[in-house]
């Protein structure tokens, strides 16, 4: 705006060289300013992209977390249904059979059958208690990762099909709730794979709590497998579970690795930096 100033009656003119200097200086200033604005726009654009990527990553993390929670619930329900059918149901049926075939006239034999039935009912009660623990969907969070994994191994040992070994190195600390949940789900998936495919007789899990990192190792003495065979173009679903576990570990900033030797067994490693996450 402004400066249509009153015209003064003097003929003093600005020298051309001075006029040029002022004009060039102004132009340089303006170019620098325009460059600054251009830089600002570019920087803001790349920052916007970063923020969008971070937001997408956060959403995908939340989605994976939710699906993990659902999978854990599903797995728990499957275990419970199997446990009720194979164990508690059998024990209670046996107790019922015992009581049904009790002849009260033969006092000694009847007492023996009642005692047996009492023991069977007591076992069923204990099994139900174990199951009720699993019914609590927050048990991973409540018990902590180490105890939850140990409990899974105990359940496997109870089946009588596996020898299990559980080892903890270093002082146990809590990881973030979501990280523990995802790690537990990976362990569950590894154990399921061992049960289904490995033909193993021994499963060992080692947790290592270090100041700067946390690592988890699941080992079995099964038949092993060829990792190259996982990339089967004709069967794209092959190796999907491992890819899934790998993605989940990446999502929580962990490194997932798997080594397998034919006839000797398989080992799954997960390593996670902790730094400030120790609580």
């Amino acid at each position: 705006m402004y400066y249509n100033r009153i015209v003064m009656h003097e003929n003093t003119q600005i020298p051309e060289s001075v006029r040029l200097t002022i004009m060039v200086a102004t132009l340089i200033f303006l170019l620098l300013g325009a460059f600054l604005i251009f830089f600002l726009l570019n920087f803001r654009n790349s920052r916007n992209k970063d923020i969008l990527e971070r937001e997408n990553l956060r959403i995908s993390f939340q989605k994976t977390l939710m699906s993990t929670q659902l999978e854990i619930q599903e797995q728990t329900l499957k275990n419970i249904s199997q446990e009720i059918h194979d164990n508690i149901g059998q024990v209670l049926s046996l107790a019922k059979l015992n009581l049904a075939t009790t002849d009260i006239d033969q006092k000694e034999a009847a007492r023996q059958k009642v005692d047996d039935s009492k023991n069977l009912v007591a076992k069923a009660i204990q099994d139900l208690r174990d199951l009720s623990k699993s019914l609590n969907t927050d048990y991973v969070t409540d018990m902590g990762l180490a105890r939850s994994i140990e409990y899974e191994l105990e359940m496997l040992k109870k089946t009588g099909s596996f020898d299990t070994d559980f080892e903890i190195e270093g002082g146990v600390y809590k990881l973030e709730k979501q990280k523990e949940l995802i790690l537990f789900r990976i362990v569950q998936e590894v154990l399921n794979n061992v049960i289904k495919h490995a033909k193993a007789s021994r499963i060992a899990i080692k947790l290592c709590y270090q100041a700067d990192h946390f690592s988890l190792k699941v080992m079995d003495n099964g038949q092993g497998f060829d990792l190259n065979n996982l990339q089967d173009k004709q069967n794209p679903s092959r190796g999907l579970g491992i890819k899934n576990m790998h993605n989940r570990a990446s999502l929580i900033g962990g490194k997932f690795s798997i080594t397998s030797i034919m006839t000797e067994g398989t080992s799954v490693d997960i390593r996670l930096p902790v730094l400030s996450q120790i609580m």
Binding site: Y3, R5, V7, E10, T12, Q13, I14, V18, R19, M23
Partner: peptide, 8 residues
């Protein structure tokens, strides 16, 4: 006393 008329 250059640009007294403020032309520039």
């Amino acid at each position: 006393r250059w640009d007294v008329t403020l032309a520039v």
